[in-house]
Design a protein around this nucleic acid. Sequence first.
DNA 1: ATATAATTTTAGACAAAGCTAAAAAATAAA
DNA 2: TTTATTTTTTAGCTTTGTCTAAAATTATAT
Lengths: 217, 217
Amino acid sequence: MFSLSEENYLKAIFHLQKHSKAGVSTNALAEEMQTKASSVTDMVKKLSDKKLVVYKKYQGVYLSEAGRQTALQIVRKHRLWEVFLVEKLDFSWDEVHEVAEELEHIKSEKLISELDKFLDYPKRDPHGDPIPDAKGNFQAANKTLLSNLSKGEKGTLVGVKDTSSEFLKYLDKNDIALGKTIEVLDKEEFDGSMLIQIGDRSLRVSTMVTVNIYIKI
Amino acid sequence: MFSLSEENYLKAIFHLQKHSKAGVSTNALAEEMQTKASSVTDMVKKLSDKKLVVYKKYQGVYLSEAGRQTALQIVRKHRLWEVFLVEKLDFSWDEVHEVAEELEHIKSEKLISELDKFLDYPKRDPHGDPIPDAKGNFQAANKTLLSNLSKGEKGTLVGVKDTSSEFLKYLDKNDIALGKTIEVLDKEEFDGSMLIQIGDRSLRVSTMVTVNIYIKI
DNA sequence: ATATAATTTTAGACAAAGCTAAAAAATAAA
DNA sequence: TTTATTTTTTAGCTTTGTCTAAAATTATAT
């Protein structure tokens, strides 16, 4: 159907699209894809010919409905494989991304529907991100960044924004995990750092941490 | 490490090598790879430069020890994934090959060692073929073709040579499966067809069938 | 043993996806 | 509103793996 490269571009545009309703710029896409702007222009033209994106010179690129559906299916596969790796193969949440990047491109409808069943139709991946269903539907959680909470507020950790191995290992080390209850004991307005209560311990965390943790109140 | 294409060539040479101790011919490899002889020559030169095969112009190609080990690891991955698909995802044995062709190229040591553990270190794939261990060791079963048995002899079905969907579906339809006991009730010397006892039924099968079923006596 | 046939290799071309360097367009600054 | 800067596109080249057509080699058959 689509080449490896085409699929990766669609996924990248999808992820960049989320953050702003404007078109995705060539440079942003080049950065995300770890490639050069000229290569992006070439590929974007190709995707445009295939009606997967809407593209006007110098105006950035948008996913078409077909492109969005394709991207959603890749995201679905990526996240299902992540669940598989963590739940069945004892991977930790900081190890799954790389492998899932490869597994997401395996082409078999049956494989994914059976995997979904085998995993008992999970709704979220190990980082708390929602898994689209076969039709591309998923509910974006009503979540907010920990940094938005005020002193005294509390909620449940439902996701992370930064999924880098370094950040996830930091969380593991400090016993910060999905599903834990976090309460803001104190917030330092000067630098945004917080003193939080998590489980039976309290901990001081920097802004780098608070802007990368999603909380459901 | 190696490209998709390189891996597939190594695997193809490995499979063709098994059948004759002579070098694998360019044409045979082209046939196996569904490509042209000229393309094969190019690739074989490349593999030779990388010391994965031994190649002399017009003399066919042989796997080097490094090439053999690489091929064995690909075969290992292919067969482990086949077990996974059949045992965990309810695939039937005629559906697994295509998908395993893709899965076998995923690059992660940990993925394969964990999968092996998850499947409880299977020794054979769903077609009865042995699964090499992490070091590339596997025991070739002492098996023979059903066609080699004489009237009155019996044994256990331990594998199939032809793994095409058509053949496997024929076997399923006639309730011929791995592990079943087969006895040769009668053998027609003229065309090699046999009357066999399998389970509580007897069945007449053609040579096309008897030369594609492996029996352990 | 020589002619014919089959196999294999070489030479040159092509598509995909990337790159560099230069030109063009858009944006920001003076 | 010009000028300067940044962004984007174009043009042309590279690599990987393929192809076709022609040449070279090996095998087969008379």
